[in-house]
C-alpha cells in the first residue's frame, strides 16, 4: 500500500456524497425522506410522552418517584439491538401483537425509535423541570397550584431548555441502526433508511459509498441541530430578554 492511496477512500467518499446530492439521486431522496419521516414522527411521539412524564417526575412528590427516575435514566442507555429484538418478539406474527401486522413497516420503526428516544426526552425533561422547580416551588405553593398545573407551567417556561432534550432524542433516533434494522428489515423502498443503507453498502464492501452516505447523514444532523439551536436562541432573546 502506497501512502497516496491511503486517503483514497475518503476522497472517493466525498465525491460519492457530492454526486448523490448533486444528481438528487432518486433512491437517496427516498431513503432520506423515510429517515426524516420515521425519526420526525418518533421524536414527536417521544416528546408528547416524554415531556409530561419528565415534568411529573421533576415536580412530583410521590412514592416510586426516585425508582422511576433511576429506571428512566437506565433506559437511556438501552442498546438499540435489544429494543429491536424485544419489539421483534412482540410484533412478530408469532408474537402477542402479531395480528396488527406491523413488523417490517415504517410504523414498527417509529415504535422502535420512540422506545429509544422517550427515556432520553423524559430524563432530560425531569432534570430541567426539577431544577426550575427548586426556583418556583414557593411561588407555586403560595398560588396553591396542583402538580399537573405545576408540570404544565414548568414545561412552558422550560421550552427552550427542552429543545435540547428533543434534539438529543433526534440525534439518537437519526443515527440508530440496530433497532430499525431488525423491526424494519431494511426492505428496499419500504423500510430502508439512511443508517440501514449505510450498513448494507458496508456489507457489500462499498466502503467509500457507505462513508459518503455517512457524510450526508452527518451534514444533515449538523443542519438540523444548527437550525433548531438558531430558532431556540432567537426565541429565547424574544422571551427571556
Amino acid at each position: 500500500m502506497v501512502n497516496k492511496d491511503a486517503m483514497e477512500p475518503f476522497t472517493t467518499a466525498f465525491a460519492n456524497a457530492w454526486h448523490l446530492i448533486w444528481t438528487a439521486d432518486a433512491d437517496l431522496m427516498g431513503v432520506l425522506a423515510l429517515s426524516f419521516q420515521v425519526t420526525g414522527l418518533a421524536v414527536l411521539v417521544s416528546c408528547l410522552i416524554g415531556f409530561p412524564l419528565g415534568a411529573i417526575l421533576g415536580v412530583g412528590r410521590f412514592a416510586g418517584r426516585s425508582a422511576s427516575l433511576v429506571a428512566i435514566n437506565a433506559l437511556m442507555g438501552l442498546p438499540p439491538v435489544v429494543v429491536g429484538l424485544g419489539l421483534y418478539l412482540l410484533l412478530s406474527r408469532a408474537g402477542p401483537l402479531g395480528v396488527f401486522g406491523l413488523l417490517y413497516t415504517p410504523t414498527a420503526m417509529v415504535i422502535a425509535q420512540t422506545v429509544l428516544v422517550t427515556p432520553i426526552v423524559a430524563a432530560l425533561t425531569a432534570q430541567v423541570t426539577e431544577e426550575m422547580h427548586r426556583e418556583y416551588r414557593d411561588l407555586f405553593a403560595t398560588m396553591g397550584m396542583g402538580q399537573v398545573q405545576q408540570a404544565a407551567t414548568l414545561l412552558w417556561d422550560g421550552r427552550f431548555a427542552l429543545t435540547t432534550a428533543a434534539l438529543a432524542g433526534t440525534g439518537r433516533a437519526f443515527a440508530e441502526v440496530g433497532a430499525v434494522m431488525i423491526v424494519g428489515g431494511n426492505i428496499d423502498h419500504v423500510t430502508r433508511v439512511m443508517t440501514t443503507t449505510i450498513a448494507l453498502e458496508t456489507s457489500r464492501g462499498e466502503l467509500a459509498l457507505a462513508l459518503g452516505l455517512g457524510l450526508i447523514l452527518l451534514v444533515l444532523s449538523l443542519a438540523i441541530n444548527a437550525g433548531v439551536m438558531g430558532l431556540r436562541n432567537m426565541g429565547m432573546r424574544l422571551a427571556h430578554g
Partner: peptide, 30 residues
C-alpha cells in the same frame, strides 16, 4: 380550598420566564 386569601411576596421576586402580561394571566388563571 377554592380561594386562597393569603398572598406572599418574596424578597427576591420569583417571575415566570414569560412576558409581564403572561405572568399575570397565568396567576389569574390559578
Amino acid at each position: 380550598p377554592e380561594k386562597r386569601r393569603v398572598a406572599l411576596v418574596f424578597q427576591r421576586p420569583v417571575l415566570l420566564r414569560r412576558t409581564a402580561l403572561a405572568n399575570l394571566v397565568h396567576a389569574l388563571r390559578q
